[in-house]
């Protein structure tokens, strides 16, 4: 410790310590900023990369998944993989590409049971309630059934046949004498397993499983369905319309 010319005691170590703290703190702040930006950008993942059953919504999933790979190890069909740098999803997180290996929807859901952190929600005990994504006919122009042919493969392989995918009949206006058997996905029952996408006979699948965030499936809060609200309320929500007198020249009506 030494006194300066003005008589103020100054400790050179104090100045050094403050300098160090500023420097190191600055470095850490830069690191934190870059890491935060990277963390936020890692939420984006390619549409074909699907999460295992029970996965929390992507943002919560990234807060919970520790990249241990236990779900991958317990997947009996080698469907799940851990993401490498070039794969797209956040590094080290589990995913599958339905077109390569779809989910076989095991009854006991071993991947969810293996997850130590709850990134795969342990509340999921019925695989039929899984929402890994939702199938969408992405190419009406090439789907064979929509051209009036009978392919039906996606419908046949669907584990929830006649519920998640149904064939809807309509008139084939091109031939005028045949029917079109349109495969229609019912999101309520679709687990996003990807069997349909895997087995689509076209070179580029006409039906694809999309992550829920992309396929939406969420009605805006402000759209109320009158018929549902009526059911909930147990009756009409507004008073019955006024009974107005019939104003016609003749009571008997038109001939």
């Amino acid at each position: 410790m030494s006194d300066s010319a003005k008589g103020i005691p100054r400790d050179p170590r104090r100045r050094k310590a403050l300098q160090d703290m500023t420097r190191l703190g600055g470095g850490a702040a830069v690191a934190a900023t870059m890491l935060t930006a990277f963390g936020v950008s890692s939420r984006a993942r390619p549409a074909q990369a699907l999460r295992p059953p029970g996965a929390l919504p992507e943002r919560d999933f990234l807060a919970a998944c520790v990249r241990c790979g236990l779900c991958v190890r317990d997947c009996p069909y080698d469907t799940l993989r851990l993401s490498d740098w070039a794969d797209g999803p956040a590094v080290g997180t589990p995913f599958f590409v339905a077109r390569n290996v779809p989910c076989e929807m095991c009854d006991n859901i071993p991947c969810v049971k293996a997850c130590p952190t709850g990134a795969l929600d342990h509340a999921l005990t019925d695989i039929a309630k899984a929402k890994m994504g939702v199938a969408v006919i992405t190419s009406r122009e090439t789907c064979l059934n929509l051209q009036g042919l009978r392919c039906d493969v996606c419908y046949r392989v669907c584990p929830a046949i006649d519920k998640a995918i149904t064939l809807e009949l309509s008139h084939n206006a091109r031939t005028t004498k045949h029917a079109i058997f349109e495969p229609v996905v019912h999101a309520e029952y679709c687990t996003g397993c990807g069997k349909c996408e895997k087995s689509c006979v076209l070179t580029d699948a006409a039906i694809k499983v999309l992550p829920i965030e992309i396929a939406a499936l969420k009605q805006d809060e402000h759209y109320k369905r009158g018929w549902e609200e009526k059911k909930k309320a147990g009756g009409a929500l507004v008073d019955a319309p006024l009974k107005l007198p019939v104003r016609r020249p003749e009571a008997g009506g038109f001939p």
């Binding site: 934190a32 990277f38 890692s42 807060a63």
Partner: peptide, 15 residues
């Protein structure tokens, strides 16, 4: 820890 909090992800495991 700050980056984990701000980005809502297990930040260090990204790199």
């Amino acid at each position: 820890l700050a980056a984990s909090m701000l980005s809502g992800s297990v930040a260090w495991e990204l790199i």
